[in-house]
Nucleic acid binder design. Sequence first.
DNA 1: CGCGTTTACGTCGTTCGTAACGATA
DNA 2: TATCGTTACGAACGACGTAAACGCG
Lengths: 336, 336
Amino acid sequence: MKLQQLKYLLAIVDNGLNITAAAERLYTSQPGVSKQLKLLEEELGMQLFTRKGKSLGGITPAGERVIERARVIMQEVENIRSLASDYYEEGTGSLSIGTTHTQARYVLPEIIAEFRKRFPNISLNLHQGTSEQIADMVKANKIDFAIATGASELFSSLLLVPSYRWDRQIIVPKGHELTQLDRKITLHDLVDYPLVTYVFSFSGQSSLKRAFADEGLEPNVGFTARDADVIKTYVRMGLGVGIVASMAADCADRKDLQIIDAEGLFPRSTTWIGYRKDALLRKYMFDFIQLFAPHISGRQMDLLRRATSQDAVDSLFAEAELPLRDGCGDKITAAA
Amino acid sequence: MKLQQLKYLLAIVDNGLNITAAAERLYTSQPGVSKQLKLLEEELGMQLFTRKGKSLGGITPAGERVIERARVIMQEVENIRSLASDYYEEGTGSLSIGTTHTQARYVLPEIIAEFRKRFPNISLNLHQGTSEQIADMVKANKIDFAIATGASELFSSLLLVPSYRWDRQIIVPKGHELTQLDRKITLHDLVDYPLVTYVFSFSGQSSLKRAFADEGLEPNVGFTARDADVIKTYVRMGLGVGIVASMAADCADRKDLQIIDAEGLFPRSTTWIGYRKDALLRKYMFDFIQLFAPHISGRQMDLLRRATSQDAVDSLFAEAELPLRDGCGDKITAAA
DNA sequence: CGCGTTTACGTCGTTCGTAACGATA
DNA sequence: TATCGTTACGAACGACGTAAACGCG
């Protein structure tokens, strides 16, 4: 048995049991892959795949289990390489992050700027997508980190590190009648206006809908978009009342938009940064986590390094201690 | 990186950083091992070992971590092979068991007889030793199963499956004055006689001593031996009162020895069968477990197969439901 | 000088890519 | 006939073992 055979095996599986495609992905010849698969099957004395004529038809039950193990092995091989890189190639490497628009546009820029300053030779890749798309990237091992809000059920193979919490904010054009209220705004006030907010697939969105339902109200959603910039554009055009994450309402917007604090109206959301349970992170990756979630103490980071289960991570952080993030003013306010 | 390089690396570590010894163990030439180590270090770009002149002096901190990972990899490779054997070499293989004298002499014979009948082509190896010696065998990966009583702290790398419980029994020559008592025997009765029992290193032994201490008594230990046969021999010679595991007092002994039930006098012991957490057991190995601990239901066995932590195993079995084993009469009595 | 490691080198087996062939839809 | 996998073969590479050199105690 050789590592290459296992690598080829996984490549075949990950390319839909198409040996030709796997060979291309591996930058090698197709007969080579074919032969190594055959050799592996011969050595193990078992069929890993069922055959449809000459083509591969499916994976045998035993094959499934071999593949599982092979994945562990290749992951550990990666971990060894990663260890080695940490010791002798300090300062070089790459970091791929999958995240949503709000993070990429409003939260990450200054964090990434700081990271680049500290690690100028780490190449950074930002992959933007919906929670579901990010989950796919995780599956395909395309990213080192996923950053998102809620939707933890999509990311069971990751360790999720809660990083900060945020409220939604209501944005309206300056002088809008909602700003004339002499009391705190309520959900009742909102149902009279067309709302402009995130499309439902955006995680945490369903909690907004539920907030209305809990009071027996039906929101009038006039327009949905995937990112806050589009929402703000439409709010500026007077198309409705915007509801966005507080991070998205930055200071520049306050020239022509008015922000109404919606604290308490909707449940608070928690944004996390996650990485594969079985991956060994390089030093600069942990440094990135600490940049992203600076409330984590040095001691907590040490414990985090050793954590292998979500329970272990959760026990490190109490929700109440997470910082609350805003788009203007102090970027991070202390815990309530 | 190649699997062979990792195998060589581990062999070097397991042979006290002596490359020559490692090469012999691997049935290959010493320069070959040396070269592969060098290649591995070059590929990783790091020193795995510190050098004392030309000899290996110690393991670098980074090396330790690489070795950890390498062990996982080689274990998974074994697991794949094991899987393959299960599918295509059904009925062949080997089973090595490390256990104590009492198990080997009184409990295992009939279990092994049944196992041999079912799997005539599995070669069986019984390694007898103290708990400590068995723990060493586990470390050196010499055995598939460890069977022992108590001493669970020695076997933290194993999953321990509680299998049955047993009491100690008091054995005396026929007509001994302790048999004349018209009431249940107590610890006070025993301190007047020299006791013949297991040496202290035998696990669970300390609990015997503690039982006396709890009542403020000091037992008069006249003679200790490592196995019950020796103890019985000395009891027959009138050298003292024997205290042995109930399994060891078999029917044949009742001709010239009298057994006094000591139920309640000493804490009950639990015997377990254990296997490495990270090992993938072959089918016949699980069958052996079920032979050894027949109280485990089919459903529990299925869950056991998937268990990876001791907590998961413990949650499967409540102590109270374990059978109580005796040396004569019904071999296994139902739970109390 | 003995022990253990490294270097040097010749042999042998394996892998790889190209090219041709076979099977399937 | 287009697609995909297998077989065949020569070239290149890598692993292995023997022999010799080196360093340390």
